[in-house]
Amino acid sequence: MSTTNILSLDTVLTQQPGNIASDMDGEKVMLNVKNGKYYNLGEVGGEIWTAIATPAPVRSVVAAIMQLFEVPAELAERDVLSFLQHLLDEDLAAIADQP
């Protein structure tokens, strides 16, 4: 089931509980206990996942990625927003209350 959320740089997201994540060869692999699916988040996706371990606004996730990787701001923003939307669609992340 897909949900439609309008994400902005100010949206605060956090991980949904019930996932077991593990680092495998530099990439983050995760089991969702609720739906029994395994996911490969990759290296950049793994860092995005780590960045929302506690509720964080999208702009701080983008900043974290730009600190770790050689990437222009515009591309980082677009990719992080897209990836977070996928996490929401799979019910792996949730929009948190504003801090």
Partner: peptide, 16 residues
């Protein structure tokens, strides 16, 4: 030293 960037993708693995 920053790491090389690649567009993140959420891959669903075919393991049930």
């Amino acid at each position: 030293m920053k790491k090389e960037y690649s567009t993140p993708a959420l891959e669903v693995l075919d393991i049930k």
